[in-house]
Amino acid sequence: MSAMNEPRTITIKPSTGWAALNLKDLWDYRELIYFFTWRDLKVRYKQTLLGASWAVLQPVLTMVVFSIFFGGLAKVPSDGVPYPIFSYTALLPWTLFSKALQDASRSLVSSANIISKVYFPRLILPISSTLAGLVDFAIAFVVLLLMMVFYGIHPTANLWLLPLLILLALITAIGVSLWLSALNVMYRDVGHMLPFLNQFWMYITPIAYSSSIVPEKWRFVYALNPLTGVVEGFRWALLGTGEGPGITLLISSCIAILITISGLFYFRRMERKFADLV
């Protein structure tokens, strides 16, 4: 991609087995990540009435429903903080994750026309789809700050953990969508599975309830869901509830990294067939 004085020689030949990750190629094309992310942002709210308010409406309305039914009627315990802010704090990283998962898993198929015509590292597509979600996250975060002012909750000194948690949510989303987007090229079943997976995953993540209701002996299994670590961490860093980063977060991080590394290799292995199959 760089301007070359002495043209470099590229060798094209059939690859066999597991391909190298070739992250250098990805680095050479870093500007394209920026351009795809920028395009997704530019286009996302074109020709909509409410525009970027959608970024706020989604988590806020979910919070309202949760607060009425789970917080108000079912009296789900919320670790001593008001239920609305309790659930909204969890909905923030969840929305970031679930949006990234949905967009990134479909990214290859929805860019089929580009994939079948131009070469670039295909990894760019799921990565840039994931990154585009960060802007929505930032907008929705402002609402959280307003709610904290309203409820008189002071942020704790634990805030330092927040960027790492956001990173963990993104890595998990990228890892899972590396698998799903590559599978989606071959099996369109993935498209049908996504809404269900999304719903299922939301129930096994402590969003509407607190993870403290999970019996101690099952905590280990529960932590296998990387989002558990993210959501718990968010509440600890912002609201000061629950415990600080510990074994749960460690398990969550390990799982996320495992999924991502295996996803990277699987994606690279399947990459050579994308243009023929998509």
Binding site: M4, T11, S15, S116, Y119
Partner: peptide
């Protein structure tokens, strides 16, 4: 480089 060959080799300068 959109699709990979099944066999053979290509060398491209530039």
């Amino acid at each position: 480089r959109v699709t990979e060959p099944t066999e053979g080799l290509v060398e491209i300068r530039g």
